[in-house]
Each structure stands twice: as structure tokens, then as C-alpha cells.
């Protein structure tokens, strides 16, 4: 743990700036980031200004341009990545897939939270209640708790390998509940309407459908940008824990105890 001389330090960081910068950005994420911002601004324009109000829900319908895309991204994309990452981690102990599973789950929980909040705000003026223990609402709430639990398990203080393995098991088990979320509107009666995007026939008018699809694309791009950055942060955390600080810390603490 010899600290390098200041001049050497400065030289090293100048060198690092060329190869690995002191942040989690890169050329590709900057392109993706600009694209995400452009899409976000156009989504806001379409969702809040250009589209007409819905015939019966009026303006509260605009919440669905956020609600449906966030739900699709979190439930179908983010947690699917977590599932795949968890399975591969359990089979191959790949750090990459473990970290990617965690990164996708974290952004997925964020999007699922947005799904729940926008859904509740839409439900009040439409149904008459913010919340009802309807099959789809309940199974979605269960998903939120399960994946929040997955994130909490990843932060538990224990042996990193055991922790990753337990998280992976939870990442797989939690996905089973998503099947219930998906089919809840068909299996049971409830308040929630059916699939908004049915491949066979979508019951939505032109510009509204366009805005909804724009929302889905936008949220996917935002998600991709967030997950890449989150993965890089997770990678840095892993490096800081595994290779560097944790080992050094244990050594120094052991030194201290031997005095």
C-alpha cells in the first residue's frame, strides 16, 4: 500500500484518460445518450402536447404513454436479462453475467416503480381508486418486492460468491412470478384491462399508437444507456472490492490485530 509520488500519480491519470477514463462514459454511450435525450424530448412532445386526449379518460390517458413502456421494459426485458444472467452465472460462475443480471435488475426495479406510480395515478381518475388487489396489480406488486429483495440480497454482507449464488437463485425464482403477471388478466377476473399491445389487433388510434410505440422505443434506449453505465459501475465496484481494497483492508486489519 505504498502511495505513489504525486507526480507519478498525475502521469498515470493522464495516461488513464486516454485508455480508460475516470468516468463510466464512452463513445458509444454518448451516442446512445444523445439518442435517448432526443427520443425523450419527442416522447414528451407527443405524449403531452401533440396527441389528442382520449375520448373518455381525457388527459389522464397520457400517463399510459409512460406506464405501458416502463412495464414492458422492466418486466419483459430487464428481468429477462436478470434471468439469463442468473442461469449463466450458476452454470459458469461468470462475473460478467452476475454483474449484468444485477445491473438490469436495478434499472428494472426503477422502471417497475415508475410503472406502479403512473398506474396508480391513472387508476384514481379512471377506476376510482389508486389501488385495488386485482390479480395483475397484486402480481406486479409481488414482482416489485421480489426484485427489490433480489437487490437487497446482492447488498448483503457475506461471502461474495455465496451472495451472488443466492441472488441468482432469487433472480430465477422471481421470474416465475412474471408469468403470473403476464397472464393474470386472462386467468382471473379483475379491474385491469387486457394487453394494451395485442399483436393481432391493437385497439388504438393512429397518432396515439405512434406515441405509444415511440414510448416503447424511448424506454428501451434509456434502459440500454442506464444498464451499460450501471454495469460499468458494478464492474468498478467488483474491482474495488475483489482485487484492491477488500484484500488490502483485511491485511491491514490483520496487521493491526497482531500488534
Amino acid at each position: 500500500m505504498n502511495d505513489p509520488a504525486p507526480s507519478q500519480d498525475a502521469f498515470e491519470s493522464a495516461l488513464a484518460a486516454r485508455t480508460a477514463p475516470l468516468h463510466t462514459g464512452s463513445k458509444s454511450t454518448r451516442v446512445l445518450g444523445v439518442l435517448a435525450l432526443v427520443l425523450l424530448v419527442s416522447l414528451l412532445a407527443f405524449a403531452l402536447v401533440i396527441t389528442p386526449p382520449e375520448v373518455s379518460q381525457r388527459d389522464s390517458f397520457r400517463l399510459l404513454y409512460l406506464h405501458v413502456p416502463s412495464a414492458i421494459v422492466s418486466l419483459y426485458v430487464a428481468f429477462a436479462i436478470t434471468l439469463v444472467g442468473s442461469i449463466i452465472y450458476l452454470r459458469k460462475q461468470s462475473v460478467f453475467w452476475d454483474l449484468l443480471a444485477g445491473a438490469a435488475a436495478e434499472v428494472g426495479v426503477l422502471f417497475l416503480g415508475i410503472t406502479l406510480v403512473t398506474g396508480m395515478l391513472w387508476g384514481k381518475p379512471t377506476w376510482g381508486v389508486y389501488w385495488q388487489w386485482d390479480p395483475r396489480l397484486t402480481s406486479t406488486a409481488v414482482s416489485f418486492v421480489l426484485y427489490a429483495g433480489y437487490l437487497a440480497v446482492r447488498k448483503l454482507d457475506m461471502d461474495p460468491v455465496v451472495r451472488s449464488r443466492r441472488a441468482a437463485v432469487l433472480g430465477i425464482v422471481s421470474f416465475l412470478n412474471l408469468i403470473i403477471v403476464r397472464y393474470s388478466v386472462q386467468w382471473w377476473r379483475g379491474l385491469h384491462q387486457g394487453q394494451t399491445f395485442d399483436v393481432a389487433d391493437t385497439q388504438m388510434d393512429g397518432v396515439m399508437l405512434f406515441t405509444a410505440l415511440l414510448g416503447v422505443i424511448t424506454m428501451h434506449v434509456v434502459f440500454a444507456w442506464l444498464v451499460i453505465h450501471r454495469f460499468r459501475v458494478a464492474w468498478l465496484e467488483h474491482q474495488a472490492d475483489e482485487a484492491g481494497l477488500d484484500v488490502a483492508l483485511r491485511e491491514r486489519r490483520a496487521e493491526g490485530a497482531n500488534v
Binding site: E12, A16, A20, T24, Q239, A240, G244, L245
Partner: peptide, 10 residues
């Protein structure tokens, strides 16, 4: 974290 992790491991 980038500042704390050696350049080749970032």
C-alpha cells in the same frame, strides 16, 4: 470508483 480502481482494471 474510477479514481480508486487501477487504470487497467477499470
Amino acid at each position: 470508483l474510477s479514481a480508486r480502481v487501477p487504470e487497467e482494471r477499470r
